[in-house]
Design a protein around this nucleic acid. Structure first.
Lengths: 340, 340
DNA sequence: ATTGGCAGTCAGGGTGTTCGAGTGCTGATG
DNA sequence: CATCAGCACTCGAACACCCTGACTGCCAAT
């Protein structure tokens, strides 16, 4: 077992190592922190920490470095909830000023988060299962191409281009538009999806195939939960701390470019409301991200829908302030989107 | 002056260096290529090339490396128009199969281009000055927030959230929607913008401020040439060739994350129709991209509007095949978008 | 439980040496 | 006059070597 002072030692090791990127030894510890005991004693504690695999030595007789398990212990039990710095506060304040549509807000948020943390920031689009359809617009772009635009009452707009085999004239489009709107207007996504099923039958036999094609495309779009997108910013930050990635950053950059991977990762991380959780180092191995840590939190969008946002960076990151930043931004984003 | 054989020597230096990342010396050249002359003669030619600053030696008595000027000479006069490989052809073919809306096509295109070239690929959104307004939709999201959706007849959809001071009821929205649509439907962007100027006057005095606010937002959106966006893929490829960037890739990653920079760069590169142009090394210095080269070509979208696409990579890149790939993808994209 | 002391380990940095690739030059040759 | 073989020279990369300094691990004493 490891003593209370042992944990204290682990904490300062994590803090010093994160700050300096240098393995930290017993002497440095007694020099920089007032433990009131000698270096030899610290060494004994460190030996215990090493037994528990909370720290490790890169090579014989060098300082120690936290292991993944050590970081885990740190975030779970040792990290103090550090308040945001003033600079960070004002950054959030100025950000608060402007407004815009959903796209714009999310983009601004992700840039903000990336600047606050100096890491890669990620924001997931909210899904809109509870949203209602406000209006459906059909536009003929070319004779055999129709653009369907779905406008939701929470401000989201979905669009989709449909290719038809036969050419479609404006009369048919107009008729379809009316019929569809009657069927879907004001309904939640799922109901709207079902209601559309009957629409093609109201269309003249001759135009039935084209109509079915168009309506099906719309239905598909309606049922596709648009939670499958995210915005990202600050990828360059990975290159700043290049040395933290053994070998090359290539695998990391490659992995984060596949949004699918990140979305799966987001999905698998459990988080309680209003808390920020971390996934550290090898815990991300199945995503090809074993050299990184990911912090995620939840936010609520207009419909009360829940989506996630977070940061990704090297395992050696400042967990305390980054988690605080994620928490603050998540809370703020909820407030912005929720405001009526 | 540099002889014909001298240029031939430059060509193989560029090719070998691009392939191997090793400075190439006179011996290697006579070994690998059949010039029919001795190494000493090649050395004389190389001396001339060095006088002309087309090649340089990283240090005394080491092989030579092309300078920016050397690459420039290569792409302008020496690069043979290499036909695409079969693998590349099939890649484009399979890509050709599917369809989708503009967003989707551009995203697929950019991924394709990045895979073909193993570089960072960029595709600019077309601008739509010639497009006409198909429909204008106003949706009240909350009492003081109205979402304006502009649907263009080329399939593009623009949206914008407007914040009003006083709350706006559905009657007003309905009235505005009708008035606006009457004013803009079927008109090109510019005309529509002007025509909207009179609309607020048709609204009751009481609601004038809110109406003006909304209409102005729409007008602003109409006149904002939406050429200010681009999609990107393959940023990870920069990390694969990390060694080509002296120091760190950080500045490069940082620069390409600022889309503004890339758009300016795109804008300043002159290109004739159907050709691909290159901007090499220090020619990009004012954009913080002096270690990279950029290849761009034009494509035409539905309205006949011209936009650009290209790739960005280390100066040491395979110009011949990359330019071929850009040309092929540009041509193909034009065909896809232009098809009626 | 804590401590001072001491021997042992090992990475990093500096130095010296060798090796070899590649150049520039020169004088000879057709 | 272009081409060529030969030779002396340069300089980076690789290697061996040695020191230094920063640590640790252990032990006997308090």
């Amino acid at each position: 077992m490891v003593s209370d002072r042992g944990l204290e030692v682990l904490r300062v090791i994590v803090q010093d190592y994160v700050a300096s990127r240098e393995p930290v030894g017993s002497k440095t510890i007694v020099d920089r922190h007032s433990f009131g005991v000698s270096a030899a004693t610290i060494r004994n504690d460190m030996a215990q920490l090493e037994d528990e695999e909370l720290i490790a030595a890169p090579h014989t007789s060098s300082g120690r470095v936290p292991t993944d398990k050590g970081y885990r212990m740190f975030v779970d039990h040792l990290a103090d909830r550090r308040p945001l710095s003033n600079a960070q506060r004002t950054a959030i304040e100025t950000f608060l000023g402007a407004s815009g549509d959903l796209d714009e807000v999310l983009h601004r948020t992700v840039r903000l988060l990336s600047q606050l943390t100096n890491q890669v920031a990620l924001v997931q689009y909210p899904m809109f299962s509870r949203a209602r359809v406000r209006h459906l617009e059909l536009v003929s772009v070319t004779p055999t191409r129709v653009l369907a635009v779905i406008i939701l009452d929470n401000g989201r707009v979905e669009q989709r281009l449909v290719e038809t085999e036969a050419s479609v004239d404006d009369v048919l489009i107009g008729r379809l538009r009316t019929q569809c709107n009657e069927a879907v207007a004001g309904r939640p996504l799922l109901e709207a999806h079902d209601a559309l099923g009957d629409v093609p039958e109201l269309i003249a036999e001759r135009d039935r195939p084209a109509a079915t094609r168009i309506v099906d495309a719309v239905r598909e779009q309606l049922s596709a939960q648009r939670q499958d997108r995210l915005v990202m910013a600050g990828a360059a930050n990975l290159a700043r701390t290049e040395d933290d990635f053994p070998g090359s950053i290539y695998p990391v950059l490659d992995a984060i470019e596949q949004q699918v991977v990140l979305l799966r990762l987001f999905g698998e991380m459990e988080a309680e409301r209003d808390s920020v959780v971390a996934s550290i180092g090898r815990e991300n191995a199945s995503f090809g991200l074993e050299t990184t840590s990911v912090l995620v939190g939840d936010y609520r969008s207009s419909g009360g829908e829940i989506a996630r946002l977070g940061v990704l960076g090297p395992t050696r990151m400042d967990y305390a302030s980054n988690m605080a930043a994620v928490r603050a931004v998540a809370r703020y984003l909820s407030r912005t989107l929720d405001a009526e």
